[in-house]
């Protein structure tokens, strides 16, 4: 496997070619035997061709920021969508997993909502559950009014693209 990354928006492919005698990494067509060490997670020291590159780095959820030679580089790493709806499934309808009652609505039809925003609260089996927007969008429908019961599988909210 290889590592497809982008450095300040420039796409590059990095690969490990060998580990002995030195770790040898390729970036594009160029090959670099190197010595890597890190005294703390945010610090690094890399020797390439007799020159030492010492710097700092920090990983955000999306990218790694690298400080080297008085310059900050933004590196995007190869990623894959894990977790819920890993495939980026575009669900427009938010359905009930079980029967229950709508306790309150936190939005109205036509509202623009962002991913993770609470749309409504339902209660089922003595438990209140917040139904949140799975993605950014506009509330197209809120078919079940507050204090109304619904059955399993009922559509509680529907989104449409902004």
């Amino acid at each position: 496997m290889a590592f497809d990354i982008a450095i300040d928006g420039q796409e590059r492919t990095a690969d490990i070619l060998a580990r002995k005698p030195d770790l040898t990494v390729s970036l594009g067509d160029a090959v670099y035997p190197l010595i890597y060490s890190a005294h703390a997670p945010e610090e690094f020291e890399i020797q390439i061709a007799g020159k030492t590159y010492k710097g700092f780095r920090y990983a955000t959820a999306e990218e790694v920021h690298v400080r080297l030679d008085g310059r900050t580089f933004v590196v995007e790493l190869p990623r894959f969508g894990g977790g819920h709806g890993a495939g980026g499934k575009q669900d427009n309808e938010i359905r009930a997993d079980m029967p229950g009652t709508v306790v309150s609505l936190h939005c109205k039809e036509g509202d623009e909502v962002t991913s993770g925003q609470k749309l409504l609260t339902i209660e089922s089996m003595k438990l209140q559950i917040s139904m949140v927007a799975p993605r950014d969008g506009v509330v197209a429908k809120l078919p079940v009014a507050a204090n109304t019961t619904f059955e399993r599988g009922a559509v509680l909210a529907a989104l449409k693209p902004v």
Partner: peptide
């Protein structure tokens, strides 16, 4: 423009923070 070796160091510095590259490299 970034010197090629500096860019390589940046790439390694970023990649070594990831589990996958760490495991693969070391």
């Amino acid at each position: 423009p970034v010197p090629a070796a500096t860019e390589a160091a940046v790439a390694v510095a970023a990649l070594t923070i990831t589990d996958d590259f760490q495991a693969s490299a070391f």
